[in-house]
């Protein structure tokens, strides 16, 4: 793993809100962190040992990194059969601020038109 990982990670995390990670943010991450997130997305929840093996860092550094990721809501932990596992927390997709009555009008219009269809 790249030695500059923690500086890059910290910089990124400082800008991040603790509301999960958007996929768009993954694209702008520094390569080592992006690789870790991509890898975690493809796995079922992973153990601390799995993460340590993937990032090829020592225990202390890996623990500090996971702690930072969890504090910012990018990673969260799950208890699976008494083993602590970690997974990426994806941010919910935000709705678009369109007035409700636009959709209601559209639906009513379509329903009315369907009544007149042959």
């Amino acid at each position: 793993m790249n030695t500059g990982l923690f500086e890059q990670l910290q910089r990124k995390l400082d800008e991040q809100e603790a509301a999960g990670l958007t996929m768009t943010e993954v694209l702008t991450m520094a390569a080592p962190l992006r690789r870790l997130v991509n890898w975690m997305l493809r796995q079922p929840p992973v153990t601390f040992t799995d993460v340590m093996a993937f990032v090829a860092e020592d225990e202390g550094a890996t623990r500090a990194m996971l702690k930072a990721l969890m504090e910012k809501g990018i990673v969260h932990s799950v208890n699976d059969a008494e083993v602590l596992r970690y997974r990426v927390q994806i941010a919910p997709r935000r709705g678009r601020p369109i007035p409700l009555n636009i959709w209601q009008s559209l639906e009513e219009k379509i329903q009315n038109e369907q009544e007149y269809l042959p």
Binding site: G20, I90, A91, P92, R93, R94, G95, R96, W103
Partner: peptide
Amino acid sequence: LREGYDVS
């Protein structure tokens, strides 16, 4: 579209 959803 209006409310979004939990992508995860």
